[in-house]
Simulated assay, not measured.
Amino acid sequence: MGIHTEYSCNECGFKLVDSSDIFWIDDEKKIHADMQTVDSSKKSSDALASGGIFKYYCYNCDNYIYNFHVTRKSRFISKEEIIQLVEGLDDNIKIIDFDNRFQSCIHCRQDVPLKSEKSFAIDNKGEFFIEDSLYNDFDSKQFDFSGKYYGYYCNDCKKQINKFVILENNANLNDSLIKEILHDHTNDLTVYINDTFLVCPNCDDELQVLGESSTCPKCRVGLLTIENQTLFD
């Protein structure tokens, strides 16, 4: 189901239109972008690659930034092809990223399939916890750092790839120390620090999601209010 929202500024009357959009790349490697509906969702589920389009705004540059987040990718299309097609879709400023589940072998660089997904954490005594992520995300406990574990296996290299994505770093440990600690629990690994915000590719300022009660991007005085909102199947 898609949502189409119309905003207006309570001071200057500026109008802003937003919608829940998705994109997909079909079997002929043509890219499409549309509002998320039953029909578009069906097309995206059968596509070579697909994902969501998220609209951000940089108050410093006065620019809209579009984040194409790839959540599904077939082995018949490469990351490089996806990036090229997304970049060529239109003239909008874009950030293109891939879901944490995607991983290349750190030895031969081939794409490797996801075999397991869990939550992990390390407490202040160095004890390592890892459990099924469907049942435990450690939200109610205190740890030095925690996050998601993704396990892969490369059939070509006969290597296990263990990917740790750090979501909470309560002890403010640097990347090198986190990797050193994790090396005590696994042999092959990659570590990613997952930032909770996106930054503008032009000025590095933090990007904002414009919505209800956001500062008007035109007059910078008034606030955006919802004027109309429609749901689409």
Rank of each mutant, 00 (worst) to 15 (best):
M1K: 08
G2K: 05
G2E: 04
G2S: 05
I3L: 15
I3E: 13
T5N: 03
N10F: 06
E11F: 12
L16M: 11
L16Q: 07
L16F: 12
D18K: 15
S19N: 07
S20P: 00
D21T: 03
F23K: 05
F23H: 07
K29A: 04
I31P: 02
I31E: 02
I31H: 02
A33C: 13
A33Q: 15
Q36W: 00
T37W: 05
S40Q: 04
S41A: 14
S41T: 09
K43W: 00
D46E: 14
L48T: 01
Y57L: 02
Y59F: 08
Y59C: 00
D62H: 13
D62M: 06
N63G: 00
N63Q: 11
I65F: 02
K73D: 02
S74T: 02
S74D: 03
F76T: 07
I77L: 08
I77E: 03
S78R: 05
K79Y: 09
K79Q: 14
E80G: 06
Q84C: 04
L85G: 05
E87Q: 14
L89F: 15
D90C: 08
I93F: 04
I95K: 06
I96E: 00
F98D: 01
D99R: 03
R101P: 00
R101K: 15
F102W: 06
F102E: 05
F102K: 04
H107T: 14
C108Q: 06
Q110A: 13
D111G: 10
D111P: 15
V112Y: 07
L114Y: 06
S116Y: 14
S116K: 14
K118D: 15
S119H: 08
A121G: 05
I122E: 07
I122V: 14
N124C: 08
K125E: 13
F128W: 07
F128C: 03
E131Q: 14
E131C: 05
S133C: 08
N136H: 08
D137N: 12
Q142C: 05
K148V: 12
K148E: 09
Y149W: 09
Y149R: 10
G151S: 10
Y152I: 09
C154N: 07
C154L: 09
D156L: 10
K158I: 08
K159L: 15
K163V: 08
F164R: 06
I166H: 01
E168M: 11
N170Q: 09
N172G: 03
N174R: 05
D175I: 14
S176E: 14
L177G: 03
L177H: 13
K179A: 10
L182S: 06
D184F: 10
D184E: 12
H185E: 10
T186P: 11
D188L: 11
I193K: 12
N194S: 14
L198V: 02
N202G: 06
N202E: 14
V209T: 14
L210T: 03
E212P: 01
S214Y: 05
P217A: 06
K218I: 15
K218E: 15
R220P: 02
R220M: 11
R220W: 08
L223C: 07
T230R: 12
D233T: 10
